[in-house]
């Protein structure tokens, strides 16, 4: 089967934009190219028939990572000044090493045997999983271990970010205080988009049972709503010591773990009995979505700063 022209053109564009993101001088421009790269890669996932991955890449890879890096560029420039500097070292050895790795990887890829894959195993057991979307059946049932530990990794990363807070900032509001111009674009978007975003986020989670979507993609949309409201200065970021916030952060992993422990009665940790798998997964997803949304938003907002104490 020959690749259609659209795949060739898409891949060439992906490579050109990836190259633009790691070359040139401006760090701001590099981040903009990285966001474009994320959007193009999510189109590649659509072409590879992986719609769930495309959603995750667009929301997390391009969207949240882009916001995180853009705000980091502004803050690092403020801390270090924007004077000129030599952008790279050892360019030639790095290029030779990188080219070598690419050739080795390409050679290995071409030499891969055609894998049997697990498509049929998943399809055969799908009606016992409680879900109709095979990707979410893998995420929340067949390989629930991965997803449980992933939710713990998110929490660990957030604890790491918070641990960087200076003593005087501990317990304060996450991130730096945000101000947007009254009646400006950001403030208007901050008022009009959240209701829409809430609806889309909840829909994407709900639809994940039968169609592309799920807790991570929907949770990311909800995180974007929280970020938008905070960045537009409409509501202050939460205090990291607030009990309600801490509860929202651990709800997902806690419910997941509790259901997993209950599974011990049915034959093993994280075993879901097929008859009630659907309601159990819905319960896990509801708690997980809340935790993912709040954790991702706080990861992007960053550590509390001393100046946020007492503000707003």
């Amino acid at each position: 089967m020959t690749a259609p022209a659209i795949d060739i053109v898409l891949c060439a564009t992906v490579l050109a934009v990836a190259l633009a993101a790691v070359s040139g001088f401006g760090v701001f421009r590099a981040v903009v190219f990285f966001i474009v790269y994320g959007v193009l890669i999510s189109m590649a996932w659509l072409r590879l028939d992986a719609v769930d991955v495309a959603l995750a890449e667009a929301a997390i890879g391009a969207g949240l990572t882009g916001v995180l890096l853009l705000s980091a560029v502004a803050r690092v420039t403020r801390l270090t000044g924007s004077g000129s500097y030599r952008p790279r070292v050892n360019a030639l050895p790095a290029a030779i090493a990188a080219a070598g790795v690419t050739v080795a990887l390409g050679w290995a890829f071409l030499g891969l045997p055609v894998p049997r894959g697990l498509t049929e195993d998943v399809a055969r057991n799908l009606d016992r999983s409680g879900l109709e979307n095979p990707v979410n059946a893998v995420l929340l049932n067949f390989r629930a271990w991965d997803t449980l530990l992933e939710s713990v990794v998110l929490l660990a990363a957030l604890i790491g970010v918070w641990a960087l807070a200076p003593d005087s900032g501990w317990g304060g509001r996450a991130g730096v205080p945000q101000h947007a111009r009254r009646g400006g674009v950001l403030e208007s978007f901050g008022r009009t988009l959240p209701p829409l975003g809430l609806m889309i986020g909840v829909y994407v989670v709900w639809a994940g049972a039968t169609a592309p979507g799920g807790a991570f993609q929907g949770g990311t949309v909800l995180a974007a709503v929280l970020l938008l409201v905070a960045m537009a200065g409409l509501l202050p970021a939460p205090r990291i010591a607030a009990a309600g916030l801490r509860l929202a952060l651990v709800a997902g992993p806690a419910v997941f773990l509790a259901v997993g422990m209950a599974g011990l009665g049915w034959g093993g940790f994280l075993v879901l009995p097929p008859a009630i798998a659907k309601p159990l997964i819905l319960g896990i997803e509801a708690a997980l979505t809340l935790s993912i949304a709040v954790t991702l938003a706080l990861l992007v907002l960053g550590r509390p700063e001393p100046s946020t104490e007492g503000g707003g």
Partner: peptide
């Protein structure tokens, strides 16, 4: 039909990559 297991692992990977980046 595309294999769902790599897709699920990649989604997990994308989320973990964001956590590490943050």
């Amino acid at each position: 039909e595309a294999d769902p297991v790599p897709q699920a692992l990649i989604i997990t990977g994308i989320v973990v990559a964001l956590a590490a980046t943050a």
